[in-house]
Design a protein around this nucleic acid. Structure first.
Lengths: 137, 137
DNA sequence: TTCCTTGCAAACGATTTGCATTGGA
DNA sequence: TCCAATGCAAATCGTTTGCAAGGAA
């Protein structure tokens, strides 16, 4: 992954490394504010955003645009695998969920069918499942 | 639908009516700025947002939180039916697409399966399909 | 030295709110 | 009359950017 940054002439600095590590440990995408909280002091929001945008440009993190005009960030799918999101309407948390491959194959087929119907060329998809998470039941 | 507002002690005013009408005519969700543009002058953004929040509280419109940190609004599903979104990565447009019921039944089953796996109680879902729309091909 | 990186503060764009005014029942 | 609705301007929130200082190659 470091190579990916070096190829773009940017460094894999401690600040960027910590962002990647925190995201790697998270069960789901995190907002900038959440990241900042977890990383702790000594990380100004502006630097955080700069790290995120460098990492995004390098294809290492991907933004997930969500509730109340705030983005959540997670590692790109080539790092953590294809997955979908469980959004808790109670506490607002967003967790990743991997979908068994026989389900995912059905999803692919459905997406392809819809694309054909609508003369739309699909290149990616996301399923957002809303409800109540285990903690809020 | 007017009843829905009256029940909450709010009126179905011309300003609110025009918002509903413009949304009803749109092939997909619209941002506040787009709504304002379509409605034309004489509709300050602040009033628009106020109309939207009243309509949202009444369950008549639903926000769709999307690209580049801006919300798009559409009529609630009980008014326009269950559907998913085609998001064009080229021009940024978002169009609704209704899914044939045999597909939708498969989707329901998949969602239920995932919910069980993750001890998550699903109450709704959305499939966002990214790609290129017919216009941008 | 030469870039890249960082921190701070200021700027920005979308959305919200305070307040005084208008308007419908 | 009374309360809801509106317009304007100012405030707020998440995010971005300009600029000068710090750091690695």
């Amino acid at each position: 992954m470091e190579k990916r940054l070096l190829d773009r002439g940017v460094r894999y600095t401690p600040a960027r490394r910590v962002v990647v590590e925190v995201l790697a440990d998270s069960p789901g995408p995190l907002s900038a504010a959440e990241l900042c909280e977890i990383i702790g002091a000594g990380m100004p929001l502006s630097s955080l955003y700069r790290s995120l945008s460098v990492l995004e440009a390098a294809g290492v993190v991907a933004p997930h645009l969500g509730a109340r005009g705030l983005s959540r960030y997670e590692l790109a799918e080539w790092l953590i695998g294809h997955h979908h999101h469980l959004i808790c309407l109670e506490c607002g948390s967003v967790d990743d969920v991997a979908v068994p491959s026989h389900y995912e194959r059905q999803v692919e087929a459905i997406i392809a069918g819809i694309g054909e119907m609508a003369s739309f060329a699909p290149s990616g998809h996301a399923i957002e499942i809303e409800g109540r998470c285990a903690r809020c039941r």
